[in-house]
Computed example of a mutant assay.
Amino acid sequence: MSGRPREFKNTDVIDAAIEVFWKHGYEATSAEALCKQTGIGRGSLYNAFGSKYELYKAALKRYQDLGIEEQKALLERSDRPVKERLRSLMEWAMQLDKLDTKDADRQGCMAVNAAAERGGHDAAVADLINDHVRFLEQTICHLIVLGQRSGEIPATRSPLELTRMFISSYYGLRVLGKVANDQDLLLDIIEGTLSSLSTTKA
């Protein structure tokens, strides 16, 4: 069937491509860089995926799928209070985004980078990003409802409102994590976000 990439059973090729796209973005990634990182010739690579763009979408989806697995593992820890699970998620994002200010090569989140580079004009990329946001919204909203039922989070505010506030702070943290030189600022964002979940609505 034309127009569809042949699937690699070995995901090592896609994982290698992730590293290149994550570091350079879509536009600045060359075929030569992909061939060097994956260890596959250009003809074989494009015969398998059809184009650089199709490989990029496969890499972005793989990155998101792996991220969702890790996020689910943190958020579904039923042995921990709700706010501690949410804290773990934000701290995970900090580690993922290399928030050590001595690290000059902070790549940020590949999905956030993709949204900034292509989300405004690439429907396929926008759909992938939105799928991830919907996953987070549903999962976190469920957690907040559990927290309200247990009394950990006041039930005076809409769970969806609190969820979207949290997600806004979460993605803001991931963007700032790429450029901020003050790690204390980022830690304060986490504390402020979690504290706001306990604030009753006036």
Rank of each mutant, 00 (worst) to 15 (best):
P154N: 07
R174S: 14
E137M: 09
T193W: 11
F21D: 00
S198A: 13
G108P: 03
L162E: 02
A123H: 12
I14D: 04
E137H: 14
E117P: 12
K57D: 06
D97T: 15
W92V: 01
R6V: 14
D100T: 01
A33K: 14
D65N: 13
E32P: 05
G50I: 10
V125F: 06
R4K: 11
R134Y: 13
D15F: 06
L160H: 05
N181H: 10
Q148E: 03
L143H: 01
D182Q: 05
Y26I: 07
R157C: 02
G120A: 12
H24A: 10
A16N: 08
K98W: 07
A114F: 03
K36V: 08
E7I: 14
P159G: 00
C109V: 01
F135M: 11
S168G: 15
S51I: 10
A114H: 02
L136V: 05
V82H: 00
V13C: 02
A17Q: 05
K61E: 12
V175W: 01
A123F: 11
C141Y: 00
G39E: 05
H132D: 13
K83V: 11
Y46V: 12
G120I: 07
F166C: 02
G41M: 05
F8P: 09
K57I: 15
R42F: 09
S88M: 06
L185A: 13
A59G: 02
Q148P: 01
T29M: 08
S88I: 01
L66R: 11
E54W: 09
A202C: 10
E76N: 02
L197Y: 03
P81I: 02
P5Q: 07
E69S: 13
H121Y: 14
G25S: 06
E91R: 12
A155R: 06
S168I: 05
Y170P: 01
Y63A: 10
M165E: 10
A59C: 08
L34N: 10
D131W: 06
D12G: 11
I18P: 02
G177W: 03
F49I: 07
T193L: 05
D79T: 06
L66K: 15
M94T: 06
F49P: 08
